[in-house]
Amino acid sequence: MKYFKLIALFIRATVQVQLEYRSGTFGRAFANVLSSATTLLLLWAMFQQVSSIGGWSFDQVLVLIGIVTTIDYVVEIWLYPSLSKITTYVQRGEFDVLLVKPVPSQFLVTFRYLQVLDVLGLLVGLGIIGTGMYRTGSLEFINFALLAVFLVAGLVIIYSLYLALSTLAFWFTRIEEVASMIWLHSTAGSFPVAAYPPWARLLFTFVLPVAFVTNVPAEAATGRLSWEWGLGGLAFATLALCGATWLWSLAIRNYSSASS
């Protein structure tokens, strides 16, 4: 309850600033449409030559693109604004202020900047997913439910990766270079992982888990998800979240023993 109230207050503050600076809103949604359109065009051109990529049809890849677009957008309006501040807190020594609060610091850094005003852009991604699902004839309740579950799991994985990377700011000062890795899922994840050579498949599944973040939800939405991949995705998300949380608490302990 208290946590919902806090999130609401954080959202309100973030929205007020967004309104004051009139940052983005439509510009950002438009950029989102544009980048998705480019990817789609590219994809369409490729499918003029072949009928499937890694066993995925055009319409199935369409769902994949929709998912990448959606996740990208969530990262952009939530995870990036919130988690990228960690570096600043640490560099300015402002972490003390968070640590004396009787609320977990991980909660405070996670939900601090939620730019819900830009939520319109999400419709682009969701629209593409819907179109793809319609064209593959998979508009069924069970598919929507599974899609929701694995989209959340994918977001949890991205969140955990990004939190872990930002947590490294406690040890490295110039973390920005590392943190730009966060966008990899949208470059590498826009294609079916099955289309890559085996070594890259391994890499994209376990090291940079684009398979779990984008491929699995797309399969879920089109009713093609095998239970191995489903369980694997959920397990990976749980592990990633636990790992990132553990790393965070380690960093806090380390900070408190004051190594700077």
């Binding site: 208290k2 007020q16 600033v17 609320v103």
Partner: peptide
Amino acid sequence: AWDMTPSDSFLVNQAIY
């Protein structure tokens, strides 16, 4: 917080505490 008014910051503290 830089981006909030004192009243809003106070509300956040109310919830936190």
